[in-house]
Simulated assay, not measured.
Amino acid sequence: MYKEIGMDLGTSSVLVFIKNKGIVLREPSVVAIDRLSNKVLAVGTEAQKMLGRTPGNIVAIRPLRDGVISDYEMTEKMIKYFLKKVLGFSLFKPRVMICVPSGITEVEERAVIDAAIQSGAKKAYLVEEPVAAAIGAGIDINRANGSMVIDVGGGTTDIAVISLGGVVVSESIKIAGDKFDEAIIKFCRRKHNVLIGERSAEKIKMEIGCLFPMEEKMSVDVKGRCMLTGFPKIVTITSDEILEALEECASSILEAVHAVLERTPPELAGDIVANGIIMTGGGSLIHGFDKLIQFKTGIKTVVADDAISCVAKGTGECLSMLANIPDGTLNLARNREMQY
């Protein structure tokens, strides 16, 4: 009997769900390799510690960018490492369901499926992230009732209206957590003449990041390199400054939300007004994101419980449906699968 695994293959982190066990792994999607020998030195948490701190012959990379595979070979090695870590030694190859952005192309789909098969999966299925996120957030997507989900991940933001088990209208934009980090780095360089790294930017985002004015202003000391003198420097950044830095990214996401609402059929639009908007993904945890969307749309917006794990949990729910479809495809997923 082969095991069934759900995998949220995200740009910034990978979550693995095993049936009857829940989420068994949550690690950054980073791989560290030796350039000279092309040997993998570390994967996940250990590799993340090396970001921006490696000597010339070692490079720590993120094999996924903007929600899709940018380095096929490294992605394959990363998936293989995570599968081995959660399964150990097994005679049977697992069936794997992987979440993908709703705007993914067929070529990108093929790359994800091939990487999973080459990593040791018996079969690979794909499911759209908004669908998995909705299921993980506890929404009954099979009802004739419209639900709107905004999944803000590391590489992409997926916005979808779901009804009767499928996506009615969707939009996927490559503006999410990573772009927020880039915006903070650019702001520090422009406003304070200090160059900071990705990890520092992420730390700022998590500690004082906001997209709606805070009642109580917060600040944090940031260490970086002064671009004028070249020496290390410490500057203090406030939550109001971060609000200014993230304004452009937030506006792009709001435009995408507006575009989806414009294309939503009137009956489903009425359902969304009644049911509200659900936000999932790590990016949705930035302070005031839900308040901003509610203020701009006039629709009640809430962040799902355990928003980071919603997509992975949703794949787990889909796996229970797979058990009854041994040789078919899952209606909720894009109807694509490969096997040897």
Rank of each mutant, 00 (worst) to 15 (best):
V107H: 09
I135Q: 13
R95H: 15
G138K: 03
V112S: 07
I69E: 07
S163A: 10
A137H: 13
K80T: 06
I98R: 14
S119L: 06
S102I: 03
G153F: 03
S70T: 12
F89K: 06
D140V: 05
G67I: 06
F89C: 00
E109L: 01
Y72I: 09
T105S: 15
I175Q: 07
G120D: 00
V127R: 04
I104G: 02
G177M: 01
Y81R: 07
M74A: 11
E76M: 15
P130Y: 06
T75C: 09
M97Y: 09
G88W: 03
L83K: 06
A176Q: 05
K93F: 10
E109Q: 08
I104D: 08
N142D: 13
K93M: 11
V149N: 04
K174Y: 14
G153I: 09
G166L: 02
M78D: 01
P63N: 00
L164I: 13
G103A: 12
E109V: 07
A111V: 15
S70P: 12
S172R: 05
D140I: 08
A124I: 14
L64Y: 11
P130H: 05
D66E: 05
G153R: 07
F82D: 01
R110L: 10
S70D: 00
T105Q: 04
R143A: 15
T75Y: 09
E76I: 15
K174C: 12
N145S: 13
L126R: 05
I135F: 11
G120T: 11
A176Y: 05
N145K: 14
A116Y: 15
E73F: 15
I117V: 14
R110I: 10
A133P: 09
L164N: 15
L126A: 10
P130M: 04
A134R: 04
M78P: 13
K174W: 06
K93P: 12
V161Y: 07
Y125K: 08
G155V: 07
V131H: 01
E106R: 15
K85V: 01
G88E: 01
I69P: 10
D158V: 10
I69T: 12
T75L: 01
I117N: 08
G153V: 04
P130N: 05
F92N: 08
G136N: 02
Y125I: 03
I135L: 15
M97E: 02
D66T: 10
K80R: 15
I135A: 12
T156P: 13
V131G: 00
K84Y: 07
K77H: 14
F82G: 06
G165E: 03
F89I: 06
K80Q: 14
K123N: 14
A60R: 04
P130V: 02
E128I: 02
N145G: 02
P101H: 04
V96T: 08
V112D: 00
